[in-house]
Simulated assay, not measured.
Amino acid sequence: MERISNYQIAVLIILFQIGSTPLFAIGNKAKQDSWIAMLLAAAVGLLLLRMFLYIQSIAPDQSLIALMRICFGKVAGGIISSCFIIYFAYESMRNVRDFGEITSVTLLARTPKFIIMLLVILLAAYTILLGIETLCRVVESLIIPVLFSYGVLSLLIVVSKLINFERIQPVMEKGFLPIIKAALPDLVSFPFGQMVVFLMFWHLMDDNKKVKRISIFSYLGVAFFLIAMNMINVLVLGPALIGNSTLPFLQTVQLIQVGEIFERLDVFVTLLLFLGLFVKLTAFFWAASFGLTQLIGSSTNSKLPVCLVGIVIFISSFLEPNYTYHIWLGLTFSVKLYPIFQVLFPLAMFIAILLRKLKKDSPPSEEAPTLDMSAK
Rank of each mutant, 00 (worst) to 15 (best):
I180A: 14
F198V: 06
F165A: 10
A124T: 04
Y150K: 03
E166V: 11
S149K: 10
S104N: 06
L204A: 11
L107Q: 05
Y126R: 06
G100F: 02
F192Q: 01
F190N: 09
G100V: 03
M195Q: 03
L162D: 04
A183C: 10
F198Q: 09
V138S: 15
T111E: 00
V196K: 01
I132D: 10
L108A: 00
L199T: 07
S160F: 06
I180R: 11
P112D: 00
L129M: 15
L155P: 07
G151K: 02
S149R: 06
P170W: 02
E173Y: 09
L187K: 11
F148R: 06
K174N: 14
T106H: 05
T106C: 06
L130C: 12
V120D: 05
E101A: 01
W202N: 13
K181G: 04
V139T: 09
I128T: 01
S189F: 04
E166S: 11
E140G: 04
T134F: 06
V188M: 06
M200L: 07
G151D: 02
L153C: 02
P185E: 03
M172Q: 06
V105P: 01
L108E: 00
A125S: 14
C136P: 04
V196S: 01
T106W: 14
E173V: 07
A183I: 14
I180N: 12
V188N: 02
S189N: 08
F201Q: 11
D186E: 14
L108Y: 01
C136K: 10
I144W: 14
L142Y: 11
I128L: 01
G193I: 09
L162M: 04
V105G: 01
L184I: 15
F198D: 07
L187A: 05
L129N: 14
L147G: 05
E140Q: 13
Y126D: 05
M172D: 12
I132R: 03
V138H: 14
I157N: 03
E166N: 07
K174L: 10
S104Y: 03
V138K: 13
A183L: 15
L187N: 08
F176K: 10
T103K: 07
T127E: 02
E140L: 05
T127F: 02
I180T: 12
W202Y: 15
G131Y: 02
Q169R: 14
P112V: 00
K113P: 03
Y126V: 01
F198R: 09
F165M: 13
S154E: 09
L130A: 11
F190P: 10
M172I: 13
F148S: 12
V159P: 03
V105Y: 05
S160D: 08
A124P: 01
G131Q: 13
P112M: 00
L204Y: 13
L129R: 15
I180W: 15
C136E: 13
F165H: 08
D206Q: 15
M200Y: 07
W202V: 14
S154P: 06
A124G: 03
S154L: 13
V138I: 15
T103I: 12
F99E: 08
S154H: 04
L135M: 15
G151W: 04
V171H: 06
H203Y: 10
E101F: 01
W202A: 13
P185I: 09
F114T: 04
L177W: 13
V120T: 07
R137F: 03
I128E: 00
D207A: 10
H203P: 01
E140W: 03
D186A: 15
G151P: 02
V105E: 07
V152K: 05
L129A: 15
S160M: 03
T134M: 05
T103C: 14
I143P: 09
M117C: 08
G151H: 00
